[in-house]
Design a protein around this nucleic acid. Structure first.
Length: 223
DNA sequence: TACTATCCTCTTTAACCGTT
DNA sequence: AACGGTTAAAGAGGATAGTA
């Protein structure tokens, strides 16, 4: 059924773990074609070139990736393409949030290769997969859940603008970065404020950082 | 099946207003 | 004047429904 026409992208900056993932894929589907990307740029290049991709294994912490922003824009730009998050963390909050942002699965790096293979085949079969020993039922407060839902409605361009907003850029600077007029940026900002249900860009930035869509620069080394 | 009409979303821009 | 924000409008592109 599945195997020979299946193409899977592994996006992770650690070569060792890319190897482990590749091995896990091979154990489940020896025929599958695997494309590796070591960063966001390579991933985007792959997405631009390749047509019939079946699955992306996405590391949550890669160069060029801020929080969930990569997942968010992937979901926005390629709604049909299943994304499985691969991460070192096993925090239920992070896992739940990833799933709410549209991930098809969440694989902690600590689990064994067999389980990873099982997770991958489950997702390819159309199911979702999260670590069985992690309790996801713990309810998040309503406001946060609501905010997550709102964030998920942002368009790719709006996600880009929000990311730059979080970096403290002015409308004029964002316009320069995106090669559009300042009026365009203002319109995007307005749309973002509307969708997030806030009144100002600062509130939008605070909301985004609260959820973890964009990470604020942390004072101490945080990794 | 193929073609067309239509609707909707996304993106872009200009004009305008309020605040500092 | 500079900056942030709102609104109306228009073009591109995709999805959908109806028709021949």
């Amino acid at each position: 059924m599945q195997g020979q026409n299946t193409t899977i992208v592994i996006a992770d900056d650690h070569p060792l773990f890319r190897g482990a993932l590749r091995q896990a894929v091979a154990s489940v589907m020896p025929q599958a074609r695997v494309i590796e990307a070591s960063g966001l740029d390579e991933l985007n290049a792959t997405l631009g070139q390749e047509r019939d991709l079946d699955l992306i294994l996405l590391d949550l912490t890669m160069p060029g990736v801020q929080g969930f922003s990569a997942l968010l824009s992937l979901r926005a730009q390629h709604p049909e393409l299943p994304v499985v998050i691969v991460s070192a963390t096993e925090e239920p909050t992070v896992i739940r949030r990833a799933m709410e942002f549209g991930a098809s699965g969440f694989i902690p790096k600590s689990i064994d290769v067999d389980s990873i293979g099982g997770a991958i085949s489950a997702v390819l079969a159309g199911d979702t997969w999260t670590p069985p020993d992690v309790d996801l039922s713990a309810a998040e407060d309503k406001e946060t859940a609501d905010l997550v839902r709102r964030l998920a409605t942002l368009t790719p361009q709006q996600v880009r603008v929000l990311t730059m907003l979080s970096e403290g850029l002015l409308n004029k600077q964002i316009a320069y970065e995106l090669n559009v007029s300042e009026a365009t940026v203002k319109a995007h900002v307005s749309a973002i404020l509307d969708k997030l249900g806030v009144d100002s860009r600062t509130q939008a930035v605070i909301a985004a950082s609260k959820i973890g869509v964009t990470q604020r620069p942390s004072p101490a080394g945080a990794d």
